[in-house]
């Protein structure tokens, strides 16, 4: 190739500029088509749920629906709390203290997403080798703090953002 041909000329500039504008334009058209599949405004509007917890006895739990997902609210007995806290962190696949999974001073209340972190099934309560929850789909065992102990699930059951509005009401989300 001769030296003259290698020189960047006006046509090269026009090609590059056209490709760039074309790529940006294509991206601008594709993004709305992709983003429309993300949760819409109506879905996002369901972001908080208030739950009355005055009727729950110690040792019992209820399940409520939040953003289409079940949330377990369990009022744990003192023995259950003691047992959850006696576990050595070395025995946990996803080490986390029980204290980090509840609110300070509200130790008896365990509020967590009732969704197995493996493939999203709802674990059954009071089942499994650790007296907590057991997922029937692929056999994950969770303890009384909702922490994964055995099975294919990679992490502990998730704690959603929540707060105590008053002593009888929890607001999730």
């Amino acid at each position: 190739m001769s030296k003259e041909e290698k020189k960047i000329n006006r046509r090269d500039f026009l090609f590059t500029a056209s490709y760039t504008v074309g790529a940006v334009g294509l991206g601008a058209v594709v993004w709305p088509l992709v983003h429309q599949m993300n949760p819409d405004k109506a879905q996002q509007a369901l972001a908080t749920t208030e739950v009355d917890i005055s009727q729950i006895e110690p040792g019992k739990s209820i399940t409520v629906l939040w953003r289409g997902k079940p949330v377990f609210l369990r009022r744990r007995t003192q023995e259950e709390i003691a047992e959850a806290r006696s576990v050595s962190l070395n025995d946990l696949p996803d080490p986390q203290k029980d204290e980090e999974r509840v609110k300070d001073g509200k130790d008896e209340w365990l509020v967590m997403l009732g969704v197995c972190t493996h493939l999203g099934c709802v674990p059954l309560k009071d089942k499994g080798d650790y007296k907590g929850w057991f997922c029937p789909c692929h056999g994950s065992h969770y303890d009384l703090s909702g922490r994964i102990r055995k099975g294919p699930a990679p992490t502990n059951m998730e704690i959603p953002k929540y707060e105590f509005v008053n002593s009888n009401t929890i607001k999730i989300g």
Binding site: N38, P39, R67, G68, G120, C121
Partner: peptide, 26 residues
């Protein structure tokens, strides 16, 4: 639920992909 959750195994972007597939939080 189980099949779409397969994608949540992908590191970093897994959760966003499942939410995108669902168009909701479940």
């Amino acid at each position: 639920t189980v099949i779409t959750s397969l994608f949540s195994a992908i590191p970093l972007v897994g959760e966003s992909i499942t939410t995108w597939l669902w168009g909701a939080y479940a």
